[in-house]
Design a protein around this nucleic acid. Sequence first.
DNA 1: AACTGGCTTCCGCTCAGTGGAAGAAGTCCG
DNA 2: CGGACTTCTTCCACTGAGCGGAAGCCAGTT
Lengths: 264, 264
Amino acid sequence: MAGGSREPGRTVTSKVLSILEAFEKSRGALSLTGIAERTGLPLSTAHRLVNELTDWGLLSREPNGRYQLGIRLWELAQNTGRQLRDAARPFVQDLFSLTGETAHLAVRAGHEVLYIDRVYGSRRVPRAGRVGGRLPMHATAVGKVILAFEEDWVRDAYLNRQLERHTAHTHVDPKQLAAELTRIHEQGYATTLEEVRLGSCSIAVPVFHTGRIGASIGLVLPADQAATMTRHLPVLRGIAAQIERATARIPLETLLGSHAALTD
Amino acid sequence: MAGGSREPGRTVTSKVLSILEAFEKSRGALSLTGIAERTGLPLSTAHRLVNELTDWGLLSREPNGRYQLGIRLWELAQNTGRQLRDAARPFVQDLFSLTGETAHLAVRAGHEVLYIDRVYGSRRVPRAGRVGGRLPMHATAVGKVILAFEEDWVRDAYLNRQLERHTAHTHVDPKQLAAELTRIHEQGYATTLEEVRLGSCSIAVPVFHTGRIGASIGLVLPADQAATMTRHLPVLRGIAAQIERATARIPLETLLGSHAALTD
DNA sequence: AACTGGCTTCCGCTCAGTGGAAGAAGTCCG
DNA sequence: CGGACTTCTTCCACTGAGCGGAAGCCAGTT
């Protein structure tokens, strides 16, 4: 092995997965060389693996030669967490229909909220976390709700970390955030005002499962409606109750697979 | 190599992917042994690969020891075909809001229609193809529309195959189906009546992109409304036009990756 | 015609992957 | 309580799938 840029101990599986992950960071298509660079794989290795993935449909090749994630991957992944998504979907839909505002459903994944579903119309105003996307828990209403109702050690561990600031309004002081979480726990809902993005605010309530916090549903609206957004609380609570009822008989673990560990 | 059940020529990648695919056929969680059986992998090999996939979050392990597709897979896959889904989503939502019926968006994947998106409320009546699911083209309205507006060779190839029967009402005669497709092409929409499942009917219109058929949007309703479902045509056509406008500037290939070949 | 940049193919070396077998852990039954 | 059974986990010596440097190829570009 002349040059020896070989990096032993790296499994084939890890290489394949790093190829798929390469598409997360960079929107849009990647050239073979681009993939090789991002994954740190030698060009010929990347070439072989990429070709095989393309054969399986997990990657697709555009006419210009660049690669994209293939639709087969999406298809496979539809079987993931179907129980929760399928059970909750119609209610999130109702939440949107009843309020006319962007509605979403999120769960905790490690230290972040993961958006599982989202419903909005064509005249939607505020930009909100996209489905499959993650945001920090302390900057979103759904995240704060989850944090407020999580077990103590989860909350404590979270508060011990550096809290990222997104806008001038993000609450990053651990002491104050802890107090806010207590208040959220008492009042049963959380709000944000321009804490992720200027121009939007949000409100969320918890969805319980077998006594524990399982998920959270929320609304995102333009910041100028912040003062009146609590008017949606009755609907939010009603929908949350319906989702709880619909998912009660499904074991928590089969809802999403075991939740990602706090340290993921 | 004593017994020699070794099956040389099988790549690691193919083994990993066959594990993921194993979860497609069987709903719900699988035991390690179950995975080994379905994939034809020796137990210890399956064990090693499954463990590695679990570490990466592509599989998750339930407390009872069984495995499930992990949420990380779903997350990765959200980047697939985002362009079309994100662009079309609000309009499919509007289609539902305006009609109150289950609305969906589908594209062709090989010989089948693949449901890309679907919007429905909690009081939904008919069962319809699920997101990420496939159905044969000749039994669904969206499928017939796509077939009717596809290039000749695609349609001809399709008609030369054995047409699967789902109910007593499925149109399986190639001659008659060809005539129906011509009529659909002329009138600009397709309908079905209890051709996939008893009790439901559907109507769909084409969505064009750069002159070619790109997708189809449709509604599924209870069979007793079959007589009057054409009342939704104006809305369907309006929404289709909006989706066409919204996706016009996106190159077709980046919408979904190159469409799966007819023979996939 | 020579250069450039990205993709594809080739091929001998070698270590990651393999899988049978033995051990551990749990489950059921008499 | 023992022992028969099932399912999961670990071990380890062998070997061929994977590796990757290098050479070849094909468009564009100068």
